[in-house]
């Protein structure tokens, strides 16, 4: 990896793998994921359902059991602020969750407790990490104001069902940032929202990141959202990273066929400017109880070479690409596209 700055990274993941034993064989949800995140950096992780993007985040927080993944086998190393998280005991992880690493979940309706007022729920995030009740209540009002909810005094006494979807997600964000974490993990926070509301939430997040100086991992299946918020983008498929790099490089100098497919299925985005029709990616995601031996995307890839079916391509620096632009592919997508255009 090209880490130019000499300071230790905030988050360093090495060979993280998560397997779920099932009667039909182990489901290999994450298969050797490695990356680093600098303090203050925003990373967008893109992939479709089953790509391992959400699972690897739950694994690093030690929350797999809470999501019905009891018995999952997690291997590899995750170092946050220099401390190893994999295999840490529950109290140590608990002290970290919420306080150093905040999380915002996808569905704000089901992620908020329906019978507690939003004020109580924000305050709970604070009191669980040692703040007094009175101070927590005051801080909850500040946070509501910070995420752009008008009349926080009155709204703090409302229940989640009295809020609209966008407002609920703002509440979730307020809870996520309550303890001013160093890292905020947002798991598809805008997926359940209208496009206009999505844009507002993205604006809010950009604004908050600047104010609080936190690093962010933004998990989504929408390349458009990544372009709007992230500095670095990482494309995942079949539990592996297929391409990673600065947003500009990945969008304009795409080197992986799957990334290209994602960009081409995006309406009106930069990469799709020259086409009039949307293109879908043919085929189905792989069965992760029997992952293909080679490149997981090879069966759906029209550029695949015989080697792609046999050997897993390593994630390596693009030879003539931007620094930090990494790709896992045996084929040369740029050459293949040029050949196709010539033909």
């Amino acid at each position: 990896m090209t880490t130019k700055d000499t300071t230790a990274p905030l988050l360093e993941i090495r060979d993280l793998a998560v397997h779920f034993p099932t009667p039909g064989g182990a489901v290999r949800a994450v298969n050797g994921v490695s990356y680093t995140l600098r303090a203050g950096e925003t990373l967008g992780i893109v992939g479709e359902s089953g790509s391992g993007k959400s699972v690897h985040v739950l694994a690093l927080l030690g929350l797999l059991a809470a999501r019905g993944g009891a018995g999952a086998i997690v291997s590899g190393s995750v170092r946050f602020e220099g401390q190893e998280l994999i295999g840490r005991d529950e109290p140590a992880l608990r002290a970290l969750r919420g306080r150093r690493i905040g999380v915002v979940f996808q569905d704000p309706m089901s992620s908020l407790n329906p019978v507690l007022t939003v004020g109580e729920q924000i305050a709970e995030a604070l009191t669980s990490h040692g703040l007094g009740r009175a101070a927590a209540t005051r801080r909850a009002l500040e946070l509501l104001e910070l995420v752009g909810i008008r009349e926080p005094q009155r709204r703090a006494r409302d229940y989640p069902h009295q809020f609209s979807g966008g407002m609920r997600q703002r509440v979730m964000i307020a809870i996520g940032i309550a303890c001013e974490p160093k890292l905020l993990i947002a798991d598809e926070p805008t997926t359940a929202l209208d496009v206009t509301v999505q844009a507002q939430v993205l604006d809010l997040m950009r604004d908050l990141r600047k104010k609080l100086g936190m690093a962010m991992i933004w998990i989504t299946h929408d390349m458009g959202v990544v372009a709007g918020i992230a500095e670095t983008v990482q494309v995942m498929y079949g539990g592996r990273i297929l391409e990673r790099g600065p947003v500009r490089a990945v969008f304009h100098d795409t080197r992986n066929a799957y990334t290209l497919g994602l960009l081409q299925s995006l309406p009106g985005a930069a990469g799709a400017a020259h086409r009039s029709r949307l293109t879908s990616i043919p085929g189905q995601p792989p069965d992760m109880t029997r992952p293909p031996p080679g490149d997981p995307f090879a069966p759906r890839n029209r550029f695949a070479t015989p080697r792609c079916f046999e050997e897993v391509p390593p994630l390596a620096q693009v030879p003539d690409g931007a620094p930090g632009h990494l790709v896992a592919a045996w084929y040369d997508l740029r050459a293949a596209l040029a050949a196709e255009a010539a033909a």
Binding site: L61, L63, A66, R67, R94, A95, L96, R97, G98, R99, V103, F105, Q106, D107, S110, S111, L112, N113, P114, V115, L116, E124, A125, S128, H129, M172, I175
Partner: peptide, 23 residues
């Protein structure tokens, strides 16, 4: 999800039981 969310906030089991589930 709100139980997972409560865990992600670092709430201990006793507080999830009494503050989140009991109501």
């Amino acid at each position: 999800d709100f139980v997972t969310a409560a865990r992600a906030l670092g709430l201990r089991d006793s507080r999830i039981l009494l503050d989140e589930l009991l109501p």
